[in-house]
């Protein structure tokens, strides 16, 4: 067992971890239930969170490496979630919703890196976020709307 401290959604937290724990399991244990797990092979994107402002797969980040870093989950981005969520819900694009938190965290990253993304760029950027319900086309529309909305708001 080892003890780590990091910033979770703006607040300092500490956690007792095993040497081989992932950030994912620590976040679930801390009650960050928006973070989901959909595979064991880094393919699904459900566990996406931000580490120091970058979207990462929390399943693959060693918890021990998080000492002193800033971790953000959807719980810590509720205002942005409401805005993007409204776009997705307007299309019915969330369907079962299980992949939504991970997708949304990566969309926030996209909005920072490439706010004027084309459809092809949206798809390429979010390719690591799988969804089995929607067929993606409605999510693409919703994300485009969100990006243009953010642009208007500046």
């Amino acid at each position: 067992m080892m003890q780590i401290e990091f910033i979770l959604n703006g607040r300092k937290v500490s956690a007792a971890i095993e040497a081989d724990d992932s950030l994912y399991s620590v976040l679930r244990a801390l009650g960050m239930y928006s973070v989901k797990c959909g595979c064991e092979t880094t393919n699904c994107g459900l566990c996406t969170v931000h580490m120091d402002g970058k979207a990462v797969l929390s399943c693959s980040v060693p918890a021990a490496r998080c000492e002193g870093h800033e971790i953000t989950t959807l719980e810590g981005m509720q205002e942005e979630a409401a805005r993007l969520g409204a776009c997705l819900a307007g299309e019915g694009a969330e369907q079962c919703g299980f992949c939504a938190p991970g997708l949304m965290m990566n969309v926030f990253q996209l909005a920072r890196e490439n706010p004027h993304a084309t459809d092809a760029q949206i798809d390429a950027f979010l390719a690591g976020n799988l969804c089995r319900c929607s067929g993606y086309v409605s999510q693409r529309r919703a994300i485009r709307r969100y990006l243009s909305m953010m642009e208007v708001q500046g």
Binding site: Y33, T73, A81, A82, G85, A89, E94, C96, G97, A100
Partner: peptide, 21 residues
Amino acid sequence: DPVPKKDAPALLSGKPVYVED
């Protein structure tokens, strides 16, 4: 009418609503 799903706000804000949660 194309109304949004009733559970959309919960699902899209990451609320703990699934079995494991």
